[in-house]
Design a binder for these strands. Structure first.
Lengths: 233, 233
DNA sequence: CGATGTGAAAGGTTTCACAGCT
DNA sequence: AGCTGTGAAACCTTTCACATCG
């Protein structure tokens, strides 16, 4: 709760859970991306024993101005009054709570080729609150070959397993031609978000968040951007 | 060609490739990202025998409005007059030329763990004009284990090899703690862009484009975004 | 003083509306 | 008619400037 006195009027601002949740819809998309990066940064710095951090320092780490960082953080409401920058632990929890990053979320992976298998072994996921609970592949032989603690299923069971286990997130690491069908199965199972490593341009459905990651597209963007910086020198 | 007379000096302005490239600096960043996606789409549809496409159709594929698509395409100058949508081949070449996606670019990969090895085998890269010409790893034993047509080197040779071969792009697939040193070596070698698959937040240098790809960060963004759509219902 | 918090201005991007072409 | 091309308006995001606090 914040109390302030301005122009002869007493302002009492009460931030409740629901008003915070509603406010979130007012957060600009770039701000959400930056806040997630800041959250990541705070985790890292806290592990390294850093307990206080200014907006200027945060900006330097994530490649943004101090203004932007303060504005971003303030979309989630007031946190640290005054002096010596932000308390790292406090801000980290603040972001966690307001961004809804508390607790563990269940995730699965579709496509157990080289890339899929690599992601399956990514230990940091569980440490960050994302539990890989299922893997899928069209090729049944692959399910026997791969050694993992996670249960593996044939691709046609995606919908059932996702729904039954309440899996919220999925990684798509199948070849392009299999991507759309797999995405449909995930969506039918009630998945909330898909991180798509295939080069397929998925037809999205309302309510499902899709993030596309395509190395070739990234290379092209880098090429165009670096072409720019050279030409404009 | 424009001719003008100012302060006793005759100005002759010829629009060459390089001055057109200079114009590119006026293209908004989101537009550049979308144009790369559109380029990808056009390649795909052309292969499937589609020869004509309206801005509305393109928009449906990439998740944007027809307005946006037309505006984006027009940043690169006029292409098809009038009626029946865009000629796919024409537009594809138009984008290729104006975005500087002609010819082949040399790329390398740093870090030959599971992820790095998977990317090394990504055949589609060469088809898209990006030639993997070198791989690096700190662990010399790994260099002998991996079977590949590409020459592999120990990590300390990054700077030399990148410079000598004129490698422009790099994929960083090393553990977080090794990422910054590897990035420095790449930058010292004159790399133009880095696609960073490690969770490290790299300190960037002017003139080098860095694109960060971190699955955990993507999961968090998806979580926040899908949390939003529920709370605001 | 040097930090955050925040309304207001500036800047950038998207959307609109319609001209112009086939 | 139906499409692209494009200036102008609307909208969103960043930056600024300064009040405020310790």
């Amino acid at each position: 709760m914040t109390i302030s006195w301005k122009n002869g009027i007493l302002y009492v601002k009460i931030i409740t859970e629901s008003s915070v949740a509603h406010m979130k819809s007012d957060i600009p998309f770039p701000t959400i991306e930056r806040l997630c990066t800041i959250y990541h940064l705070l985790e890292e710095l806290y592990e390294n024993g850093i307990r206080s951090l200014s907006s200027k320092e945060i900006g330097a780490y994530i490649g943004a101005g101090a203004h932007t960082v303060r504005k971003d953080i303030n979309y989630l409401g007031e946190i640290g009054k005054g002096r010596a920058g932000y308390d790292v632990a406090l801000l980290k929890n603040h972001l966690m709570n307001h961004l809804g990053l508390t607790g563990h979320k269940k995730a699965c992976i579709v496509g157990l080729g080289r890339l899929g298998a690599a992601i399956l072994e990514y230990a940091r996921l569980a440490l960050s609150g994302f539990d890989m609970v299922a893997g899928f592949d069209r090729n049944i032989n692959k399910l026997e070959t791969i050694k993992t603690a996670i249960t593996l299923y044939p691709a046609h069971e995606i919908t059932t397993i996702v729904r039954r286990n309440g899996i919220e997130l999925a990684v798509l690491a199948v070849p392009a031609q299999a991507a759309q069908e797999a995405a449909h199965r995930l969506i039918d199972g009630g998945i909330k978000g898909i991180v798509n490593f295939s080069p397929a341009l998925l037809q999205t459905e309302a309510g499902v968040v899709i993030r596309n990651i395509d190395l070739i597209n990234e290379f092209r963007i880098v090429t165009v951007l670096s072409g720019l910086s050279i030409d404009t020198q």
